[in-house]
Structure formats: C-alpha cells, structure tokens
C-alpha cells in the first residue's frame, strides 16, 4: 500500500467528502471552538448532554481532510458515551496518533478511530486530528475561550 493510501484511508476520504454530524445544534448544552494558528483550521463543537451522557454532538468548521474526518469520526464515536468514557477515548486517541499506543493490545474502544493510526508517521499532521478533541474537552470543561493547539 502506498503512503498516500496508508494515511488517507478510504474511511478518512469518505468522512472528508461527506462529514457526518456537520452543523450546529440549537439545543446544545455546551459549545467550544478550536483553532490551529499554524494552519488556520477552525472548528466549533456542539454537545447536547443529558446528565453524564453525551446525547448528541455536532461540529462546524473548515479544515484539511485529516481534521474534517477526525471531527466527523469523533462525533460518530462519542454519541451515547458518558463523560468519563469520552475522556478515556481522547487519551487513547491522542496516544495512538502520537505513536504511544500498543495497537495490538489496546485499540478496541477506539472503534473506527483506528483509521488514524498511521498519523504517528506524520508528526506535523497530528494536531490536525487532535484539534477537534481539544475543543470537545474544553466544551466539557466549560471553558469559554477558543482553545488553541499551541
């Protein structure tokens, strides 16, 4: 498989072409913005929470294929999860894209997010994928200001 297909797997290309859960959420309980000053990518994450459970999550923003697909796949993965699960997932995802996760042992809860595992070979692109997750965390922690990858 060529490098291009390793990084840009079909699932990523598909979610870039047709992002899921794209749009705002009028009855969101939390909202946060993420901004990557290095490339100008911006993303806004909307969450609708019922107690501890993420009922719905959507996003709006413009970015590269990696950031768009990451946002899209994150929203799909998070629906129905509770806050503790979301935080664990974020940590695992971050470890995976930074090459710090043993993919043989520890990838089961990542579900479709494993398509990003080759990102660890592209350190400059890691922030593209984690931006939306940082925004999510900041929304959950109810920080008002836009989070930055820097």
């Amino acid at each position: 498989m060529s490098f291009v297909n390793e990084l840009y797997q079909e699932v990523i290309l598909d979610h870039n072409r047709q992002p899921r859960n794209y749009g705002d959420l009028p009855d969101a309980t939390e909202k946060a913005e993420g901004y990557n000053p290095l490339c100008g990518d911006r993303v806004t994450v909307y969450i609708k929470r019922d107690g501890d459970v993420i009922q719905d999550v959507k996003f709006v923003g413009a970015g590269c294929a990696i950031s768009t697909a990451s946002a899209s796949l994150m929203t799909e993965t998070l629906k129905g999860k509770n806050l503790a699960q979301a935080r664990v997932l974020f940590e695992k995802f971050r470890d995976m894209v930074m090459g710090n996760l043993d993919m043989e042992m520890d990838d089961e809860d990542l579900e479709k997010l494993v398509v990003f595992h080759r990102l660890s070979d592209y350190p400059v692109r890691v922030k593209c994928a984690t931006l939306v997750w940082h925004a999510l965390l900041s929304a959950l922690e109810k920080e008002e200001k836009a989070v930055s990858t820097e």
Partner: peptide, 29 residues
C-alpha cells in the same frame, strides 16, 4: 477539492517541498 495541508503532505512524499498555511499574512487570506 484538496485542502492546502493535504496538498503539502502528498507533495512532500514526491520530494516536493512547498509551504502551506497562511504565510504569516492572515489579512491576505
């Protein structure tokens, strides 16, 4: 159809070094 960052990554693997981003000129962007 392709974001500048994705262009940059694909070109990089062809040995081609270009710059992608706002070039420290956000008002121009």
């Amino acid at each position: 159809s392709v974001h500048p960052h994705d262009i940059g990554t694909i070109l990089d693997r062809e040995g081609v070094a270009i710059r992608t981003g706002h070039h420290c000129a956000q008002p121009v962007m």
